[in-house]
Nucleic acid binder design. Structure first.
Lengths: 239, 239
DNA sequence: AAGTGGTCTAGACCACCAA
DNA sequence: TGGTGGTCTAGACCACTTT
């Protein structure tokens, strides 16, 4: 492998491996060739392959099992990684997701800019409710450009048990990369207050994230609102 | 350096460097010895030192400047590790800490229970302001039992540039362990509104943490309020 | 026993920055 | 020019899992 554009070798390896994963060269939970073999394939040493795989493991594109191999990771959902626990019942609970609806809206100025679209472009708005032990604890709203996700339907979302990452990949060929999450405190607006069954202006923890595909193109804008009055939320270390 | 308890060398180096930082061997924004020198000191190679420093840089305990050196990051304190960036100026900024005051108060019922004290026990209340690029972005309040920290004074806190962890260890022999942080959204009370210069009831991101010593005894209760209107905050991945 | 990931080394070269 | 971080190698050994 040559030094192109002054890019370090390990970054080139990241791109190559990522491309192979996207091309479906190895299936989910199927093991990649060993680090040594990958090194031979790309003409770099095992250490360099390892550094590249480290990055992809950190992004949870891959996972490793010592003594066994490196595997293509399944895709868990992209928002709401973390521990949730009700204060009244402080066990580590996995929240249940309830799909509320999927409607078509049009992008306002800000949203259009964020997603790199023209103003007024069609978007899917998907809303989901989060419950822990039956109690409503959060609301998630996702916005996806209709152009990239034609004919997105509730039925299809439901079939995948709410795993939108996998849906984007399987049905639309869009492989999402986790973006960074911004944490904010906001007041409940009318829509949030109604859906979360809280008072207007009640403070909520807001998580905002822009997920891009691996070419860097913005694909999904997601916002979540969490009730933190009775809920302990601790962001996860990653996957 | 020997292989103790089957711990990899780089993890031992992490612990050693972390301990040295906590002990104040190098001041904030002061450069560490070079990677080669650290390798000689710990009896490991440069590559191993590098792997250890990588982890500490990822946790923003250290930062690097290519061609110059590796430095101790500000905010080696125990709350609010993470990246801060103003939306108007989205560079990774290191917040400055401004000590507001240190007064003696008495524990209410809840606080007494949390810290394992009797009601009305004397506590030190330390308040600090966080600024990024001059702007006020956060307020931190720490509560420490007077019995364990006799004669805590502002002067002593100031001398250590706000590193309360180090003060607890050096002056009082209390070695603090990071606890888990709970993230909440709350409305600004009168005290917070005044100190942060925001409206009453403005939503704020609240971080709450109970730090214990290594025997498991609660020692410091800390609460921080962050303005998230113009500030992007991303919690850091900690060890 | 064989194959994998996990760690570590000694040495090398480059890019960057300061004096 | 000299020192620093940033990258890379070839080879080695260990720990773990499967056969």
């Amino acid at each position: 492998m040559k030094k192109l554009a002054a890019q370090p070798l390990y970054k080139q390896v990241i791109r190559e491996v990522m491309a192979a994963v996207e091309a479906g060269e190895w299936q989910e939970d199927e093991s990649l060739p060993s680090e040594v073999e990958l090194g031979q394939r790309f003409g770099v040493s095992q250490g360099t392959v390892r550094k590249a795989l480290d990055a992809l493991v950190a992004e949870s594109v891959l996972y490793r099992r010592q003594g066994v191999g490196t595997f293509v990771a399944g895709m868990s959902d992209f928002l709401m990684r973390g521990r949730f626990a009700l204060l009244t019942d402080p066990k580590g609970e996995v929240p249940k997701i309830e799909l509320l609806g999927c409607v078509k809206i049009h992008a306002g100025e800000q949203l259009a800019e964020i997603l790199g679209l023209r103003r007024g472009a069609a978007l899917w708005q998907v809303r989901r409710l989060l419950r822990v032990a039956g109690q409503i604890v959060g609301l998630e709203e996702l916005l996806l450009p209709e152009a990239n996700f034609p004919e997105l339907e509730m039925r299809r979302i439901r079939e995948l048990k709410g795993n939108l990452r996998e849906l984007c990949w399987r049905d639309f060929g869009v492989r999402l990369q986790d973006g960074e999450t911004r944490y904010r405190a906001v007041c409940a607006g009318s829509a949030e207050a109604r859906l979360l069954q809280v008072e207007l202006n009640e403070p909520l923890l807001q998580l905002v994230r822009l997920a891009k595909d691996f070419s860097g193109k913005p694909q999904v804008w997601s916002v979540a609102w969490l009730k933190t009055e009775e809920l302990a939320f601790e962001p996860s270390v990653s996957a």
